[in-house]
Design a binder for these strands. Structure first.
Length: 559
RNA sequence: UGUCCCAUGGUGUAAUGGUAACACCCCAGUUUUUGGUACUGGUAUUCAAGGUUCGAGUCCUUGUGGGACAACCA
C-alpha cells in the first residue's frame, strides 16, 4: 500500500471526488454488486466486484450485495450460495446481510400502481409480435399502442387482475408510458411487468407477475439508497429510462454510471457459452481449472490476492478492451513466487544410477524452502544412489547451449552434488532408460571444493524415497485469440485439444507426502502447482499446474 | 439509413490546457546452485484534417475507425 504510485484517478474515482466536493448525500458512498443468481461468477465479475467494493472502501463507503432475482425461470438458490462463497473468498465483505430484489416485490408493485394511477403506465393486451412491430426500428419511429390511452381505472383493474393470476402468461403486460417516437428504443413504452406463472426461488408462489430489469434494478438501487450504481457499458442506453423512472416515482436519486467490462484473449466470458462447456462435458464442471470462473481459478491455484491485483492492473475505463491473459498469469506468478515453498518433483522420470555412491546409503540434505522468504525455513531431502531426473534434462546430441546433462557432461543436482554422465542404456526404440553417472563427493552443495565449473542445475528425487503423484498440466482452453469473435465459426471449433495433459507417473520428494488439498508449491524449475481439491484422495495426490515458470530455454529453442 | 458511447506504444491504463508516463508482452545484458526471481538497458505511442490558444493527447468542428441499441433476459 505504501508503495502506491502516484497514478491519476480513474474516471469513476473522479466522479466520486467531484460528488464528494459538492457535498452529494452528505458524503455518503454506497455501491452495490448485483449478480443474477443464474450461474457462476467469472473473472469478469471479479473486476466488477473490485470496482464496486474497492472504490466504495477507498471513500469510506460500503457495498451491498444484492441478488437481482426477477426471473424465476432461470434463477436458483444454489447459485446464491456459490456466489456468496466466491465474493468472500475474493476477500470482500458486503454491507450487512445480502439483499434480494425479490424482497422488494411489494414495494415494486406499489411503485407500478402509482405509475398506473398517474396515467404513466398502462396494460397492453396485444401479442408480443404486434407490440414488437409497433416498436419501430432504429430509423423508424414507433406507433402508439391502441391500449395506450385506455382509462386509468381500467388499467388499475387489469393490473390487479394480472397480479391475482386471472390472466395467462403472455396475454398482457404493463408498460411505462414514455415516448414511442424516442430514438432510444428503451424509451418506447418499455415493459415493466410481465406475467409468469412460475415458482420463485424465494417468494415461492406469492407472485405470478414479475418486474422487468428496468423496473427492478434502478428501483432497488433507490430503495437501498445506493449513491453510485456502476454497471457495464451495455446498460448505457438504459440510463435515460433509469432516470425517468426515478423522477416519475420521486424516489431516491441513485446514479448509474457505466464502465467497460473485462475481456480476456483466448478466453470466453459469456455465461451462456460457459454453461455450454459444462453441459457438453468439454470441461469438468464450473470449477474446472481451465474455466475463467472464480471457482475454476481457485481450483487451478490462483490466490485471491493475485486476482485482485490483476483487476487493479487492468484499470477502469470506458473503452472496449481485450486484456492479454499473460497479465493474469503474471499476476499469479508474482504472488506465488513470494509465498510458495520450493519443492522438487520429476514429471517425466528417467532413472540415474550414481555408480560410485555407496549402495543402500541415504544422506539427509537440507534445502532452503523459499529464497524469497527467509522465514520459510528449510526441509530435509534424502539423497541416495538411485535418483530420478527429468527426461528432457538429458540429451545425447546436445547443442552447445544445453546446460543440462549430456554424455561426459557435468550437471549440479539441486542442493546436492555435481554428477557426470558416463553411459546410458536405451531400449529397442532408442529411448533412454537409464543413465549411469559418477558423483564428486567434494562438490556437495554449500561446501563445494571440487573446483568443477558447471552451469546447469537439475532437480531430482531419490527413487526409494519418492512419492508417486499425478500431475495435471493445463493449457489455455482455446487456441484462438478470440474464440467467440468469428461470425462463421462456433467457438467450440477453437477448443485446444491439448488443454489438459495428465501425467500419472510423477515422482515427488517425500516432503510432499503431507500436502493437503489446496496447498500450493513451486515445483522447482517447472512452475507453480497446487493439490487438487476434487480428485486428491488419502492415497493419491493430484496436482494442478497453476502456471509455468518463465522458460528462457524453451524460448531459445523456438528460434 | 438513426441515436448514443469510445479512440494514447503490440496489450492495457495515466497525464485534469504546460517535458507523453506506468505495467504487461517482446528484445539485449548483469546477478544466480531454479535457463525462476531480482536488477539494468532497449524497441515502440497521442486515428486524420482543420480550428481556438503563447501553448492541444486534452477544448471545438468535420471525417475515419470501433462498439452499443428494436428479449414478456439481466
Amino acid at each position: 500500500m505504501s508503495e502506491e504510485k502516484e497514478k491519476g484517478l480513474n474516471f469513476i474515482e473522479q466522479i466520486i471526488e467531484k460528488d464528494l466536493s459538492e457535498g452529494l448525500h452528505e458524503g455518503r458512498i454506497l455501491t452495490r454488486f448485483p449478480p443474477e443468481p443464474n450461474g457462476y461468477l467469472h473473472i469478469g465479475h471479479a473486476k466488477a466486484i473490485c470496482v464496486n467494493f474497492e472504490t466504495a472502501k477507498k471513500y469510506g463507503g460500503k457495498t451491498n450485495l444484492r441478488f437481482d432475482d426477477t426471473n424465476p425461470e432461470k434463477e436458483d438458490t444454489k447459485y446464491v450460495d456459490a456466489i456468496k462463497a466466491d465474493i468472500k473468498w475474493l476477500g470482500f465483505e458486503w454491507n450487512g446481510e445480502e439483499r434480494y430484489t425479490s424482497d422488494y416485490f411489494d414495494t415494486l408493485f406499489d411503485y407500478a400502481l402509482k405509475l398506473v394511477k398517474e396515467g404513466k403506465a398502462y396494460v397492453d393486451e396485444q401479442s408480443a409480435e404486434i407490440i414488437s412491430e409497433q416498436k419501430g426500428t432504429h430509423t423508424e419511429e414507433g406507433k402508439n399502442s391502441p391500449f395506450r390511452d385506455r382509462p386509468i381505472e381500467e388499467n388499475v383493474t387489469r393490473f390487479e387482475e394480472m397480479r391475482d393470476g386471472k390472466h395467462p402468461e403472455g396475454s398482457m403486460v404493463l408498460r411505462a408510458k414514455v415516448d414511442m417516437s424516442s430514438p432510444n428504443m428503451h424509451l418506447r413504452d418499455p415493459f415493466i411487468y410481465r406475467i409468469k406463472h412460475e415458482t420463485h426461488h424465494r417468494s415461492g408462489d406469492k407472485w405470478c407477475i414479475y418486474p422487468m430489469y428496468d423496473f427492478a434494478h434502478g428501483q432497488s438501487d433507490s430503495i437501498e439508497g445506493i449513491t453510485h450504481s456502476f454497471c457495464s457499458l451495455e446498460f448505457e442506453v438504459h440510463r435515460p429510462l433509469y432516470n425517468w423512472l426515478i423522477e416519475e416515482l420521486e424516489i431516491f436519486p441513485s446514479k448509474q454510471r457505466e464502465f467497460a467490462r473485462l475481456n480476456l484473449n483466448y478466453t470466453i466470458m459469456s455465461k451462456r457459452k460457459l454453461l455450454r462447456l459444462v453441459e457438453d462435458n468439454v470441461v469438468d464442471g464450473w470449477d474446472d481449472p481451465r474455466m475463467p470462473t472464480i471457482s475454476g481459478l481457485r481450483r487451478r491455484g490462483y490466490t485471491s490476492d493475485s486476482i485482485r491485483n490483476f483487476c487493479t492492473k487492468v484499470g477502469i475505463a470506458r473503452r472496449e478492451n481485450v486484456i492479454d491473459v499473460a497479465l493474469l498469469e503474471f499476476s499469479v506468478k508474482e504472488h506465488l513466487n513470494k509465498i510458495t515453498p520450493r519443492v522438487m518433483c520429476v514429471l517425466d522420470p528417467i532413472k540415474v544410477i550414481i555408480t560410485n555412491y555407496p549402495e543402500g546409503e541415504t544422506e539427509d540434505l537440507t534445502l532452503i524452502n523459499n529464497p524469497e522468504d527467509e522465514d520459510a525455513g528449510s526441509r530435509i531431502v534424502p539423497f541416495s544412489k538411485e535418483i530420478y531426473i527429468e527426461r528432457n534434462d538429458f540429451m545425447i546430441d546436445a547443442p552447445k547451449k544445453f546446460f543440462r546433462l549430456k554424455p561426459e557432461g557435468f550437471v549440479r543436482l539441486k542442493g546436492a552434488y555435481i554428477i557426470q554422465a558416463d553411459s546410458h542404456l536405451t531400449d529397442e526404440n532408442g529411448e533412454v532408460t537409464e543413465i549411469h553417472c559418477t558423483y564428486f563427493p567434494d562438490s556437495k552443495s554449500g561446501e563445494d571444493t571440487s573446483g568443477i565449473k558447471c552451469k546447469g542445475v537439475v532437480h531430482w528425487v531419490s527413487t526409494h524415497h519418492a512419492v508417486d503423484v499425478e500431475v495435471r498440466q493445463y493449457d489455455r482452453l482455446f487456441s484462438d485469440e478470440s474464440p467467440d469473435g468469428d461470425k462463421e465459426k462456433d467457438f467450440m471449433e477453437f477448443l485446444n485439444p491439448e488443454s489438459l495433459t495428465i501425467l500419472e507417473n510423477c515422482k515427488a520428494e517425500p516432503h510432499l507426502k503431507s500436502a493437503e488439498p489446496g496447498d500450493k508449491f513451486q515445483f522447482q524449475r517447472l512452475g507453480y502447482f497446487c493439490v487438487d481439491t476434487k480428485y486428491t484422495t488419502s492415497d493419491k495426490l493430484v496436482f494442478n499446474r497453476t502456471v509455468t515458470l518463465r522458460d528462457s530455454w524453451a524460448k531459445m529453442q523456438k528460434k
